[in-house]
Amino acid sequence: MLKIYGVYRSRATRPLWLVEELGIPFEHVPVIQAYRLPEPMASEAPINTLSTDFLGLNPMGSIPSMDDDGFVLHESLAISLYLARKYGGAIGPKDINEEALMIQWSLFAATSIETPALKIQQTKADTDDGKSEIEVAARLLKRPFDVLEKHFSQNSHMVGGRFTVADINVAEIVRYAQGHSALFDNRPALKTWLETCQARPAFKAMWEKRLAEPA
């Protein structure tokens, strides 16, 4: 059986949202980040990214990881792209060109959007320094967000005119910056696309499970 390792409050949301879309059976193994635990090496500590058993699966100690009947894979974007290719039907690529575009957009989001978007999510805006850091991060997002705005002004989805794994991968990265409304107020096509993705029943099911986890 397919196993996905990682908590919902992590990048594991990407493959966990995807399996909700696919409706395939899987086992969720809730491996938590070690930095969130006061004593991750204690005998009573839950399985975490420093646990010996998990490091045996993923020596990097990062989540998520996946075991699909003995095929082990790490990195959330790679896992999602693999699962969509194997199980996805319309949510996966229909040909090699679509597959290349799904990889392109996923890597674009990871390299051009994720770092400043995470800075926005993780920085408190209740101090002058925090506000300044957020504004710097928002400026770094201007060009990639303009690229997405132009794309969604002409296309309903990332690839192929339909909802695919590329929408999941990109939406879950763009989400990090969602709290900074100014980035979306003047980019209506991007805002509409993200809200449409997050209105899907599978996203809501994934998000409900995320909210049920301890913060």
Rank of each mutant, 00 (worst) to 15 (best):
Y8G: 01
S10I: 04
S10V: 00
R11F: 13
R11T: 11
A12F: 11
A12Q: 05
A12D: 02
T13D: 10
L16S: 11
E20I: 08
G23Q: 03
G23M: 01
I24N: 00
E27K: 02
V29E: 06
V29C: 13
V31Q: 04
V31S: 06
Q33T: 08
Y35V: 07
R36E: 14
M41K: 14
A42M: 04
S43H: 12
P46T: 02
I47T: 13
N48W: 11
T49V: 02
D53Q: 13
F54P: 03
L55G: 03
G56S: 08
M60Y: 13
G61V: 03
G61N: 09
G61T: 04
S62Y: 11
I63Q: 00
S65C: 10
M66W: 11
D67Y: 05
D68Q: 03
D69V: 00
F71R: 06
V72K: 13
V72L: 02
L73Q: 07
S76N: 09
S76K: 05
I79A: 05
Y82P: 11
K86G: 07
K86Y: 10
K86L: 07
G88F: 11
G88I: 05
G89H: 03
A90V: 07
D95F: 00
N97H: 15
E99P: 12
E99N: 13
A100F: 15
I103V: 14
Q104T: 09
W105C: 06
W105N: 07
W105E: 08
W105D: 09
L107D: 15
F108A: 08
T111M: 09
S112E: 15
S112L: 07
I113T: 06
I113S: 05
T115P: 12
T115D: 12
T115R: 13
L118H: 08
T123D: 02
D126Q: 01
D128N: 08
G130K: 06
V136I: 11
V136E: 15
L140G: 06
L140I: 01
K142M: 10
K142C: 05
K142G: 00
F145P: 10
F152I: 08
F152E: 13
Q154S: 14
N155K: 12
H157T: 12
M158I: 14
G160I: 01
R162T: 04
V165N: 11
V165A: 11
A166Q: 10
I168H: 10
E172L: 13
Y176V: 00
A177D: 00
G179W: 02
G179C: 05
G179R: 12
F184C: 07
D185F: 09
P188E: 02
L190F: 03
K191E: 08
T192L: 13
E195D: 15
C197N: 13
Q198S: 11
A202Q: 08
A205T: 14
W207V: 03
E208R: 04
K209H: 03
A215C: 09
